[in-house]
């Protein structure tokens, strides 16, 4: 057997594979915000976000940009269908639901519950 064949069949370091396998191959992904209903628009509706962040970071950013007070709510939706749990990772959502040539994850936000 040729040495090169042997090398490619060697298992990669197990821990390394466990830590990195299934990650997207980009550091940051594009998030595209969409105001739903009467929710105010923001100056920048598109931004880049670290892929490994949890979705709660997206929600926090939206809250900051809208200057919401602690008692005020914001509801975030993917594809006008569902609200991700705060512990879902941005990279999983982006991989499954990104749209268009720019590969953007569209996140709709509303100040009251928009989709039951």
């Amino acid at each position: 057997m040729a040495a090169s064949t042997m090398l490619t069949t060697l298992p990669v370091d197990a821990k390394e594979a466990l830590a990195t396998d299934g990650k997207v191959h980009v550091q940051k992904v594009r998030i595209h915000l969409v105001a739903i209903g009467s929710a105010p628009r923001m100056s920048t509706m598109v931004f880049m976000m670290t892929a490994s962040n949890r979705f709660e970071v997206v929600v926090r950013q939206i809250r900051n940009k809208l200057k919401l007070k602690p008692h005020e709510s914001v509801f975030c939706y993917i594809g006008n269908v569902f609200s991700p749990a705060l512990d879902e990772s941005v990279e999983n959502l982006w991989r499954c639901f990104k749209q268009g040539q720019k590969e953007e994850l569209y996140v709709g936000y509303a100040l009251s519950q928009a989709f039951g």
Binding site: I78, V81, F82, S83, C96
Partner: peptide, 9 residues
């Protein structure tokens, strides 16, 4: 919301 995400997929 998990039900919805599953249906979306």
């Amino acid at each position: 919301n998990n039900v919805k995400e599953a249906d979306f997929l």
